[in-house]
Design a protein around this nucleic acid. Structure first.
Length: 260
DNA sequence: CCTTCTTTCTGAATTCGCTG
DNA sequence: CAGCGAATTCAGAAAGAAGG
């Protein structure tokens, strides 16, 4: 089936002579004799694909049982793949892998930002679940940058305020009221990040020490509800102040680089 | 046949803008 | 002032697809 020639090409019975680099070299045993076999990668891929399609159910159940008996290994593989894809996206938009505003290089802090906003709309219309995979698939298009979570919140949104039906003065008053209320609660919990010590109130947030923040918020309400709830309940323990970088790093990645 | 990579989906961590 | 939905993400599970 696979014909050998003396130069740097091999001949595939289906697609003809090809460069040797397009062949997979493997050792196979036939009639008790082991010999080197060259398989055309493209044809092999096509053949396997057809085989996969016609036996998809069997493959799926085999894979499922493999994952079940190699849980930790399967988890590690997927984690590695996600990290690789994320790093690729970050490096594509920032060769030094750093925040384009403050310059921090802690990978846990970094995220891809839509420069002109509209991230949710973009996700919804393009049905994007994981921005890194989407960017890779689309050849890392322009319009994105790398920001840390703190800068993303502090500058990312302020630069593109929504057009309100109310006057600018009224919106600014609402915002300042909220900020003042937030600061009054933050002061009860130290008013600086319990991890890195930053006291920039624009990036400080309340962290649920034992997790479960989303469930709690769903119960008591979104927005400033958490600050109202804390004040109403006389600033209970189990909460602390963290900046968004440390909060998201601990909440999502499990640990903060400041503690490594 | 076993292992690895890719993609999709769900739920987790937050704050802010708007409206009745 | 209360509450909804928008805004930023990532990890892990599961399924799909491919590699060796």
């Amino acid at each position: 089936m696979w014909v050998l020639s003396m130069d740097q090409t091999r001949t595939c019975s289906k697609c003809g002579p090809q460069d040797i680099s397009l062949f997979r070299v493997r050792s196979e045993k036939s009639n008790g004799v082991r010999r080197t076999v060259y398989r055309c990668i493209l044809c092999d891929r096509k053949r396997k694909h057809l085989y996969y399609i016609s036996h998809a159910k069997r493959f799926a159940s085999q894979h499922k049982s493999w994952c079940a008996s190699n849980r930790d290994r399967a988890r590690e593989i997927i984690r590695k793949a996600h990290h690789k894809c994320r790093l690729e996206a970050i490096l594509a938009y920032s060769p030094t892998a750093s925040c384009s505003i403050c310059g921090t290089t802690y990978l846990n802090f970094l995220a891809i930002d839509h420069i002109d906003g509209g991230g949710t709309e973009h996700r919804r219309t393009q049905k994007i679940k994981n921005i890194s995979y989407w960017l890779k698939k689309n050849g890392f298009p322009p319009g994105f940058r790398v920001l840390c979570h703190n800068c993303n919140f502090k500058y990312g949104r302020r630069e593109q305020p929504k057009k309100s039906i109310y006057s600018d003065e009224y919106c600014e008053k609402l915002r300042l009221d909220r900020v003042a209320f937030k600061i009054s609660v933050l002061q009860a919990y130290g008013n600086c990040c319990a991890c890195c010590g930053t006291d920039d109130t624009d990036v400080l947030s309340i962290d649920h020490v034992d997790g479960g923040g989303t469930k709690h918020r769903r119960k008591i309400g979104f927005g400033n509800a958490i600050y109202k709830w804390l004040r109403k309940n006389k600033f209970p323990s189990g909460y602390r102040v963290l900046c968004l970088n440390c909060n998201i790093s601990i909440g999502v990645h499990g640990q903060c680089p400041h503690r490594l």
